[in-house]
Amino acid sequence: MPKQVKAIVIAGNGTNCEREVAFACKLAGADVSDIVHVAELLAGRVKLDDYHFLNLAGGFLDGDDLGSAKAGANRLLHAKIAGSDETIADQIRRFVAAGKLVMGVCNGFQLMVKMGLLPALTGESKQSCSLTFNDGGRFEDRWAWLKVDPESPCVFTRGLDAVYLPVRHGEGKFVTDNKGTLMQLEQQNLAVVKYADADLNPTMVYPDNPNGSEASIAGICDPTGRLFGLMPHPEAYIHRTHHPRWTREDMPEEGMGLWMYQNAVRFIREELLK
């Protein structure tokens, strides 16, 4: 019997999109797609080691009260798993070292960046980028075109050229600590997806670039391409009825966001579990 592809979505403390992310994993072909409350991980009843694909879903961890995902990152870094000296962050590092996949969407992306999981240019978990208040100073829900970097090592965007997805955030402006970091992201093709105009050219112009992100960056990966985070929501476009104009345009049943999950499942099945 072939090995099973197992996805996990962490829920709790203000995570909101766990159900649709788990469904997207399932639809993309994952054999197991579990929603696990963070309390279960902290109690030690569930271990990340038993999965291949870790999903950090959108939401408002702890209300984003200290800045988006800041308190959430603090919990994963410091809270000890019951009966051990290990943190969830330790488990994630082991997960990553085992060649597995992590995708963070929106609040999950913010969490990865603020834990230092992304972009991890030097391989160590030190925060070098951030996501902060949109230039407009407000939360916004709107759809955006993303241009995919075809040269990117990102596992999730293989074969993709452009995707159309909703953004739903107040703190989505991507910034780096210095020009060097930005340069490395660009040179190593880690700036996987960029906000683009109708002609699919990266743009700094609102509303095509909804938040004023540096270099129009909407999502990044680490140098291995197995860790990926983005502000737009791929799990929110997995069927044509999710598209804002499905009543007026002919479009395929499958939504563009599903492609990213399919890529993840394919990678696990064909490369990780081979």
Binding site: N16, C17, R19, E20, F139, E140, D141, I238, T247
Partner: peptide
């Protein structure tokens, strides 16, 4: 005002508050 509300979380909104060629 509508854009300040997340009207799509849970991935179930089939007819959204804003529709049409330019959403």
């Amino acid at each position: 005002v509508v854009r300040r509300y997340d009207h799509e979380v849970q991935a179930g909104t089939v007819i959204k508050p804003l529709v049409g060629v330019a959403n």
